[in-house]
């Protein structure tokens, strides 16, 4: 088990990590999700021992990591741009972590070769052992980097934006493959991403970070269904933001009211996702709106609407529902939000 407690890291006046605590459970795949500058990569580098926190503790299986140098942590790290040794073949890259061991920890040459062979098979690159990194595609380099990190049998595998530099199709395939590999090998892994879809699809636990702080930790479903803050809600997908007024657990926006349990009286913000709103005829619905544009996106239609006070509002519905509705730009429609998330206004 890996635990991080009250980690603080400053770069000059900038606080990259601001009192961060979390636990990576054994055998789980954890995502650090956040925009750039949120501190997620710094946290990953602190875990690897490549950066050092100003204060706070990291414990690797109960051992204080501060006592271990990067080279003794037995942590696998996959760099965003792979950082393969350019002058070494694929096989030499993968075997590097074993070859640099000293004394009796260093396996004999034939055993290293055998393990390298097994790893290359595992990452489906058995035929490319003699190639140089520059002769490989992005996806192949990624897998070499992974094999190299796994060669040292790490207690923790860290991946920095593992799919960031790949094109969309390769990224999807690799994602599924990595998930399977993680489960098959019983790894404990942490990866950094700014792509919420990637985090929600791949991870057992998602840590949402913002400005060096943890906003929320939870399973993908928890995070998505019960976001703890306006930031999390907005970061996990498109959302319409409505400034509202809350009184005794009921929020009001225009003439429409909704449940806002647990939100103190006063100004608040309400979020509605585009697909969580029903669009119907203008009469009798909760909110009146005017259709500005309708954009067909494959099986769905995105409606760009404006509310009576000119606030823009976005809704998404199926092609069929849209043709049943039978409206064109300039027409009035009625909106009925199915789910609303309300938060007190901050600051």
């Amino acid at each position: 088990m890996i635990s991080v407690e009250r980690l603080v890291k400053r770069f000059g006046a900038f606080k990259a990590l601001d009192d961060v605590s979390l636990t990576v459970p054994e055998g789980k795949l954890m995502a650090l999700l956040g925009p750039s500058g949120s501190g997620k990569t710094t946290l990953l580098r602190c875990l690897a021992g490549l950066d050092h926190a100003d204060s706070g503790d990291i414990r690797l299986d109960g051992v204080d990591a501060a006592a271990l140098r990067a080279k003794d942590r037995r942590v696998g790290f996959v760099f965003q741009h792979y950082a393969l040794f350019r002058h070494m073949t694929v096989a030499d890259n993968v075997g590097f972590g074993l070859k640099v061991r000293k004394g009796k920890d260093r396996p004999p040459a034939h055993e290293i070769a055998e393990r390298v062979g097994r790893l290359l098979e595992l990452v489906q690159l058995a035929g490319l052992a003699g190639r140089y990194p520059s002769q490989l595609s992005g996806g192949q380099r990624q897998r070499v980097a992974l094999a190299r990190a796994l060669a040292v049998e790490p207690r923790l595998l860290l991946l920095d934006e593992p799919f960031g530099a790949l094109d969309a199709q390769v990224r999807k395939d690799l994602r599924r493959w990595l998930r399977r590999l993680h489960d098959d090998m019983g790894l404990t892994s942490v990866f950094v991403t700014h792509d919420q879809e990637e985090a929600l699809e791949l991870a057992d636990e998602v840590v949402v970070m913002n400005k060096g702080r943890i906003e929320q930790i939870g399973s993908p479903a928890e995070i998505y269904d019960h976001p703890a803050s306006p930031f999390v809600f907005q970061f996990l997908g498109n959302a319409n933001r409505l400034d509202c007024l809350v009184r005794q657990g009921v929020g009001a926006f225009g003439g429409w009211s909704f449940a806002a349990r647990g939100v103190p009286d006063g100004p608040g913000v309400a979020f509605v996702r585009p697909h969580d709103v029903e669009v119907g005829p203008a009469d009798g619905a909760a909110m009146a709106a005017t259709l500005r544009h309708a954009i067909v996106l494959g099986p769905t239609v995105r409606l760009e609407l404006s509310l009576p006070d000119q606030t823009p509002f976005e809704a998404e519905l199926g092609r069929e529902a849209f043709s049943r509705l039978d409206v064109s730009p300039g027409h009035a429609v009625g909106l009925t939000p199915r789910r609303v998330a309300a938060f007190p206004t901050q600051g």
Partner: peptide, 16 residues
């Protein structure tokens, strides 16, 4: 410095 960092994480010392 990526490659150097990779080497260090893999267990190589500074000289190595």
């Amino acid at each position: 410095r990526d490659e150097e960092e990779a080497a260090i994480v893999l267990g190589a010392g500074g000289l190595r």
